[in-house]
Amino acid sequence: MRSHVFRPLWIALGLLALFLTARALYVPGDFGVHRGDYTYGWYRTGNEDDWKAVQVKHKGKDYCAGCHHENYAKIAASKHSRIQCENCHGPARDHPMDPPKLAVDRERDLCLRCHADLPYRPKVYTGLPGGPIPMKMQNPEVHNPGLPCVTCHSVHTAGWK
């Protein structure tokens, strides 16, 4: 057969070889169909390890208890016992190394997230082992407007200062 018949064939084969080589180099070995499920199992398995490797920033109050035992015990005995330290102090990350100091949110708005008297906010708190209690709620426009709540209230004991 004449060469003008074969020439496009060589080009096609060359392009195919190029595509297969490029794919072999670019696509990771763990990419493919897993669990025999093309619809939901076509992916790179290494991605699960990528997500597992994300840094844990919120360590939980037991981590805080290691050093701040006094405040840990105080809040644990209060009606705020289910509130994590990191809700108001921010994520611990690698505190005390990084960051060396945690900010404290003393804004009125922080308390109002739960204690503002909205007409459609549940009136009963069921989060405590001792049973349901009424939610303490205030109308922020009437109850000492402009004054930080921590002027009179203690967050760690959920009582007066």
Binding site: W51, K52, A53, V54, V56, H58, R82, Q84, Y125, T126
Partner: peptide, 19 residues
């Protein structure tokens, strides 16, 4: 995924004081 694979709760679950 980084928390539940270490036996922790998801961050939102821990942060909720209302269960």
């Amino acid at each position: 995924y980084h928390r539940i694979t270490k036996g922790m709760n998801p961050a939102c679950v821990d942060a909720c004081a209302f269960g």
